[in-house]
Design a binder for these strands. Structure first.
Lengths: 329, 329
DNA sequence: TAATTTAACATGAACGTTAATGGAGGTCGA
DNA sequence: TCGACCTCCATTAACGTTCATGTTAAATTA
């Protein structure tokens, strides 16, 4: 445990150039109040000596760490992985570092993640909470550290959030299936992501209603037990369902795997539409049409919002609903 | 930009309990030299007041940040996403925070990532370098900050690394195809990941040789141009190749997509074997056999190694080759 | 009983940076 | 010619911890 490894500090540069530590600091930050030539001299010397700023000291003094945390379910879910990647890129572009933490949908782990983020003095947190009454969220609220909900939305709260237009997405998915001639449709959602799921189905049903499909020909299921999925699908098929709207692409994959194993062909026997369009990022042997929720835009919007919130805590709560589009495949 | 948001500090607890800051610090760290009752009193008070340690100050003084950085290609590649997830979990379990940075296989971005990590005073870096002569690596070496190469291996260097037994993996893949009756085989690698690719093919060829397959019936290609892949596959097929070893699962997906679009069935017309076995983590509608490189073990080994290196810089270079196994599907 | 140890805490400084303020010298206008 | 102003840099203190070292009183030992 060699302390500090003899790293170059401001005072080393100060000694080498004859200026004070403060002047060196200001020169390296390109502040005014420093003459052009002094500034260049110091910057050159710093580069020559291989100086790298110690962010710990800098942040301790300035009170800003230029660090964010993203807390999501798991990177193993491609949706979060892609989002994390995009957020990390955008953060880095703006000079922010990012802690990526996974809760694995476990409230305890989520709370731990929040506490970790807080002890690291992050400037802000981007979180996809397990649930809206998770202890992590209340800890976050109490901490007064700015945070933004990612892809999650709850009515009647003062939390900032960035999410996509789920209703419109469901509508587009429904419209696509209807335009393709399907007349008995169903939506399947594995996990109960209450609001998103509801909204997507409500848009889906609206499309069906507009097309004159009777309500009893539009199905919805959200089975608790994964083992109940295949029987449900088979039941729908036997009732004449030909178009399926999957809550998200990842679940669509699972569903297609299931169907495949049961000898049901996609899209031959059943047309499957997804959501998120992560197929735009990850290759997939069986491309399916999907609602594109523009993750790149969501990432940028989230970073933009958290920065605004950091700079102005008095900003009124922002609930950013981003547009979606439909990708035919 | 409200400074410090009135967070509780050691001195607040000191004032509340009547002890000094130092005593509070020691009590919260469960050090000896503090009486049992004082320790409890202080810890209770701290919890009551909602104290969270300021890691910036702590690290600045102690010289250890308990922070690591992982620098990989991109989270969009499920292989890295899974590895990152596992590493993050293991790091968190041991009280370490993790910066996850993506180079997108761009040397400039990689260098930036390294510089970011260094300026954040990370205790160690886990990196999958773009190449072995990337500026990022030399910066890292000069910095004297411990680092471990992840899934990358180079002969004749003093760098620590953790990687899987590529040769054995290739051998197992070959053996599987041979045992399944295939007699003309090929290996396909999209990107030129020099060492791994070579090793895997060398093991692959060894299996073929042992089975008495003539050398001219074992093919290898690593096309620069993605557009050249399908023609290559078709050429092989026309030459009677029936078994394909893909450099990794992700590439196998791409390959299968290509084959599918060309009307070539897997495994009907061509049996495809992958590597990494990320299908153990991510669902996939068309399961393929794969070499399991035990990512969980690799993650733990990497964290273990970097910790050892941090605590003992004089440790001789460690090159950890982990065993692989084969998953039939 | 005096010397020595020990338990339990206090004191002061330091980590490397930045904010706030101060001050010397020069310029400029009236 | 005198103050006003500006340019450029220095001085001082602070961020919240932890390290190294003191200090005091009680306990132990010779």
């Amino acid at each position: 445990m060699t302390r500090q490894k003899g790293r170059i500090t401001l005072s080393d540069i100060a000694a080498a150039t004859g200026f004070t530590v403060n002047t060196v600091s200001r020169a390296l930050k390109n502040k005014d109040d420093i003459s052009r030539e002094t500034c260049e001299l110091i910057q050159n010397k710093a580069k020559e000596m291989g100086y790298v700023r110690n962010y710990l000291a800098s942040s301790l003094r300035s009170g800003r760490t230029r660090t964010l945390a993203m807390i999501a379910g798991s990177m193993i879910n491609p949706f979060y992985a892609i989002l994390a990647d995009l957020i990390q890129q955008e953060a880095a572009r703006l000079g922010y570092s990012l802690f990526i933490l996974c809760s694995r949908d476990n409230p305890d782990a989520e709370l731990q993640a929040v506490e970790m983020a807080l002890s690291r003095q992050v400037d802000g947190v981007l979180i996809t909470p397990c649930s809206f009454d998770s202890p992590a969220l209340s800890t976050l609220r109490n901490s007064k550290v700015p945070f933004v909900l990612l892809s999650r939305y709850q009515e009647n709260t003062a939390d900032d959030c960035v999410y996509c237009n789920d209703g419109e997405g469901g509508y587009l998915a429904g419209k696509y299936l209807l335009d393709s001639g399907h007349r008995k449709l169903a939506m399947l959602s594995y996990r109960q992501v209450v609001f998103s799921s509801k909204e997507r189905f409500s848009g889906f049903r609206r499309a069906c209603a507009e097309a004159g499909i009777p309500e009893q020909d539009v199905f919805y299921a959200c089975p608790e037990d994964p083992a109940a999925v295949l029987p449900q699908l088979q039941a729908w098929l036997s009732m004449g369902v030909t178009g399926l709207f999957s809550f998200c692409d990842v679940e669509a994959w699972n569903t297609i795997t299931l169907l495949d194993s049961a000898g049901i062909r996609v899209p031959g026997d059943l047309t499957v539409v997804g959501f998120d369009n992560i197929l735009g990022y990850v290759q997939f042997p069986k491309p399916i049409p999907s609602v594109d929720c523009h993750l790149q835009e969501e990432a940028c919007a989230a970073i933009d919002l958290i920065r605004k919130r950091i700079h102005d805590p008095s900003l009124p709560p922002q609930q950013l609903r981003l547009p979606v589009s439909f990708i035919q495949r």
